[in-house]
Design a protein around this nucleic acid. Structure first.
Ligand SMILES: [Mn+2]
Ligand SMILES: [Mn+2]
Ligand SMILES: [Zn+2]
Ligand SMILES: [Zn+2]
Lengths: 142, 142
DNA sequence: AAGCATTTTGCAACAAAGTTGCATTCATCG
DNA sequence: CGATGAATGCAACTTTGTTGCAAAATGCTT
């Protein structure tokens, strides 16, 4: 078992999930991905597993807080692995900005860019903030 | 023609769109709505028009900048009318925070809450920022 | 290591959401 | 009013997501 496989294995166990080949493989895909992925992306990469299994696996990972969803304006739902701390605690609180490239559609976590706070009118009870910046990514600017 | 109809009519003309009954009616729905709406909502309210017409009308309104999409974590795409300035100029730059209620799913434009600025790492070219706050709305808190 | 209980998977069938081409209808403008 | 181009409705289709159930795999116990 290489390093990536070990990491994947450990995350599953830490979250009380049984280690099946589909879960392991899909998690490895996320761990080694540089951008956020949507269901369709996974389906293309991991062709050996059933569509339904992928839906269920993504849902399981969401429930456990292993991955987080990124709402984008292109009407797709992208997912990315949570930072190490998130994964360890199982308690998910993403506090960074996400970047969506209008040219190539790739979506990234900007782990170092914190979401600034806002003050809401009274009456609103805030639980979570999502900030997505649209623009052109490094690669597409060149 | 009442006030609402006149407004709807005017917006369509200002954007160089022919005034058809479906466009007028759908725009009136948006103008009098208190929350953002998704395709399905429109379909339920405006039963006299074809599903396809609604899809095409929403796309047309988006192209013209009459409505703007709000990315939410519940995997739906909600739309809301742009502020009067947006509509007039045709050039869409929404700068306010959106609120998504996790209890009732209703989504609102918080027109008075400006999106704070962020600084991105070099290489990223920013075009637009979206900020969506999840939480509990006034009504659901009661 | 083998057996057992439980969970996960794949398949099939289905439901919902979104797209496309084309004939008909409608809005706009002279 | 009549001509012209645009918008609509319908049908057919593709894609996306959901559900029930039998078969397979996992983790645990012995
Ligand atoms: Mn992230
Ligand atoms: Mn808005
Ligand atoms: Zn790009
Ligand atoms: Zn609410």
């Amino acid at each position: 078992m290489n390093k990536l496989e070990k990491q994947s294995d450990l995350i599953l166990k830490n979250n009380g999930l049984s280690v099946t080949s589909s879960r392991k493989k899909i998690l490895e895909v996320f761990l080694s991905a540089e951008t956020a992925l949507e269901h369709q992306d996974i389906e293309k990469i991991v062709t050996q597993y059933d569509r339904v299994t992928i839906y269920r696996t993504l849902q399981t990972f969401l429930d456990k807080g292993i991955i987080h969803p990124i709402p984008t304006t292109d009407n797709s739902i992208k997912y990315a692995v949570c930072s190490e701390t998130c994964v360890k605690t199982g308690h998910h609180h993403d506090n960074h900005v996400h970047f969506f490239c209008d040219k190539c559609g790739k979506t990234e976590c900007l782990d170092d860019v914190a979401i600034p706070s806002v003050i809401l009118p009274s009456g609103y009870d805030m639980h979570e903030i999502n900030m997505v910046v649209n623009g052109t990514c490094k690669t597409c600017r060149a």
